[in-house]
Amino acid sequence: MHAILKDFLDKWVYPTGFTGPGVDFRLRQTERCLPLWDKLVLQALKAAETDLASGSDEYKAARARGGYAAEGPFMSLKQMSTQILSVSTDQQPKYIDLQRMRARQIWDEVKHGQLHADVMLRGGFIKREEELMDDPRANTQPKLSYFGMTAMFPHIHPLARAGQHYYNESMACLGITATLSVIDDDLIRHQLHSQSAEELMHFMEGKYQIDAYALTPEDQKPIEEVFDFLLRPWAPEPSRALGGAA
């Protein structure tokens, strides 16, 4: 296991505030995630080294465009609002905090879009953020099925998103740490540092939701099915912003 993953696990995954079936379920799912999290770290390191060795600044723009496509302002509004709507009014006493988290995450994610745009602006790749509206590379979401799955959560279960939070937001954290360990460019570092705390927050939301709410087989099933999907061999790889090819 790579040291970056081990450090992440010790600091953020294993410390646990509850006992009970939710925690037991999360730790079982964690075991399933570990090989892919480890692979992600190695992949992000390799991508960062390749980018550095390219001898060109184009990798910065490619990362920023990829990031904008995945978490640009409109994509973020769409994705996070589906979660707000996944809680029916009669479930609100139980799950209003999911809505609060998503309202906050809407704001986090649109800011992340702005951070990617800042790389493009400050790197001299564009003069105005609006130019990105005409660039398909900044608007093509990597793995539509991942985002479409989020859009289905209002029809599945309010807790289903916890699977994406736990598995994918952790990848964002790991990818950021791995990339920061290699790339010394100020623009890229600023962008990654500026969003790392919020990515960790989103991972924590997944951890908390599973520990605190996924207490019965009925509540665990939709989350486990999301893990099943994400852990398929053809599962989404990280976005270009984090060193993936997509």
Partner: peptide, 29 residues
């Protein structure tokens, strides 16, 4: 939450310049 969730679902990619999404995201928060 139900109002803003519904409104956000009704804004498509590049319907507006990005500032519209930033401002609406902040209002929701």
């Amino acid at each position: 939450y139900y109002v803003y969730g519904g409104w956000a679902q009704g804004i498509n990619l590049n319907d507006y310049p990005p500032g519209v999404a930033y401002l609406f995201g902040k209002q929701t928060y």
